[in-house]
Design a binder for these strands. Structure first.
Lengths: 206, 206, 206, 206
DNA sequence: CATGAATGAGCTTTCATTCAT
DNA sequence: AATGAATGAAAGCTCATTCAT
């Protein structure tokens, strides 16, 4: 898959990506130095010219994951439901483009391969996403754009649930009637937003 | 952890349970015959008097999982939102009582340890749950108990998202302000139901 | 294969016979306590109620072998070719009736399973047979019943070769044209004797 | 017993040879990866960089056996007793030079270690040898160089018996009076040929 | 006597890691 | 930088042997 004598930086990237791919497609148990070497197209011993040991490879894979997630955060400015919309759309796009990334977030695989410290890093990114969503929703509730009497956590779970569902559907399962697999991220968000907003109308009418 | 000379059936149950626990708490890579033996309190060789090999242990663990999930299905009778309510409450209760079970469903760990065939079995239980939820929601939409213009898949993901969220919150993370960790399953469902129903009121007013 | 609560002596015989059978039909590597137990129809632990350990089982099997061989020795009296004839006929009969016995003699399997001391015992029985044949042939040479200028060892090997050949043919291979598999032991000996004697005629004619 | 860092091909040869040696000198049960590694002078894990598993090691050993036997076949041309003479001499030489080879042929050890398929391969080489001898003898009978009224199978067994006897004598037992251990292969064949031919003279005289 | 659960040593195999080439 | 042979520590599994029931 790869030729000879690349600079370490490039090889490191190849290896980290291969690790991410293997973990998310075949599982942690298959993440072996031999499997990595084969994917990258080098001899197994060569792996350790570029990384001190397997832990550092998983660290590098986590870094890739962190970067990808970090890029999929919209700005903190603007009206809450707009911020949330950007977030959802970006995440759904990420699901489509790099399905392996989000599969890891909802799935302790990377964490497992990474041990204590790595698990914490993955957990932090997840936490940061939850916090982002929570803040948007809290603001929206305050502005009465969505119903304020639904517990915040419930709303967060529902929004995150949609992203998870999309991640699962895209990767595991065949498209299904009533599914949203061929809806664009924007269409999905439109439906979700409409649904969230609709709950507040009721209050106004009261 | 255990006394001596138990009948095979009992040991098998102990071992399968230990496997479930290890996979869900420590990850597939830690599911070793030594770890199992230690948890059960027997020597490692003894494991294989009770199971032919590790695969069969994972199979047994999957069977436990299947049984637990199968028991957490309510009847198919009755009004849709009532059925859905029972389902959600049962699943949330399962999350509280046996947190390791649902962590597996949302988490390819068991599947990974189990290979092709085992993965399929886990997938089927998940699918069956999704189908149950989808049917309840479709019926509710038909009866106009919830808004009919939200895509069905979206609703399914939101409901499932709540269960997943509960599963994650309960196990991974410290309770948090705005969380629902100390709400009872019934309270969580009440909020969720209120929220779902509120969306249909709007239509009536139009 | 067997019922419950037999006296030790009987079980010992069953077990030793089973060992002989397994070694000669399936090979030393398959001689395990579990395999023995299964053949005899008892639980594996029970084996060691009747024998202290596997070595003693092999010893007992060797004893069976020794007895069978010892019984297949004719008297030392009489004209040499007659003695030799009895010997050959008895051995060929043994090949037919209990093929596993002679397969072991020509085959270090028992010896291998038995270690140093057991190997020596098997070797002794073989030696005793060789010596018997050698003596008959030497006497016959002296009496000019067979040619005296063939080296004795050569004659011994040829006679033993016939017995080995019969042992192999009977067990391994399908009967073949030109074979002797359906000749009686007596017929085989008649041919062999005729052949041996024929070599001496020549001398007489000189 | 060996230095470090040899190319795989060489190590494979070393390992296969060691396997052959161990099987024939110590028995199948002693053919363990540890024993092989020790003989070759490497660590046990290293064995499996050169062979996928023990089966393949036994296969390689069988290949060595096959090659050695195949080389010890003379041409099919020429007068039958001359062909047979070459065969016998070559085999006796093989016995002297590489005693482990022929011990395997007369001994199911390799076959046992090799399972079904391997056993068949060993059996074929044996069969091929028997066929060669049978054909020589049949031709010789037709030409009246040896007596035509001895059953062919009997003659085959006697000739093969001489080779077996030599193989056994050389390896197992101390040289003995009346033995042929210090006769050259050519001398043994001379005696054997003389003996075989002598049987036909008789007929001429009749 | 018989059973079968338990043990622990030993075997095959895998794998991260090192290092001579 | 790259290779691939070598290492040694597990991991999975087998088996003789013990012993509570």
């Amino acid at each position: 898959m790869s030729s000879k004598r690349l600079p370490t930086a490039e090889r490191q990237a190849q290896i980290a990506n291969a690790a991410l791919r293997i973990i998310s497609m075949q599982g942690v148990r298959r993440l072996t130095s031999a499997a990595l070497a084969e994917q990258v197209g080098i001899a197994d011993g060569t792996i350790f010219r570029h990384f001190k040991n397997m832990n550092e490879i998983v660290d590098a894979a986590i870094a890739l994951f962190e970067d990808a997630i970090a890029e999929a955060f919209p700005s903190d400015e603007g009206p809450p439901l707009e911020r949330l919309g950007s977030f959802v759309v970006m995440r759904l796009a990420l699901v489509r483009e790099r399905p392996e990334i989000l599969r890891l977030a909802f799935n302790d695989r990377l964490a497992e391969a990474a041990g204590q410290e790595g698990a914490a890093r993955v957990g932090q990114m997840v936490e940061r996403s939850l916090t982002f969503v929570r803040r948007c929703l809290a603001d929206a509730q305050e502005r009465r754009e969505i119903t304020p009497d639904a517990p915040l956590a419930l709303l967060v779970w529902m929004v995150i649930g949609v992203i998870r569902g999309a991640a699962d559907t895209d990767t595991h399962r065949a498209p299904r009637e009533g599914g949203l697999s061929n809806a664009t991220p924007e269409q999905v968000w439109a439906s979700l937003e409409h649904f969230l907003r609709s709950t507040s109308k009721e209050e106004e009418h009261q």
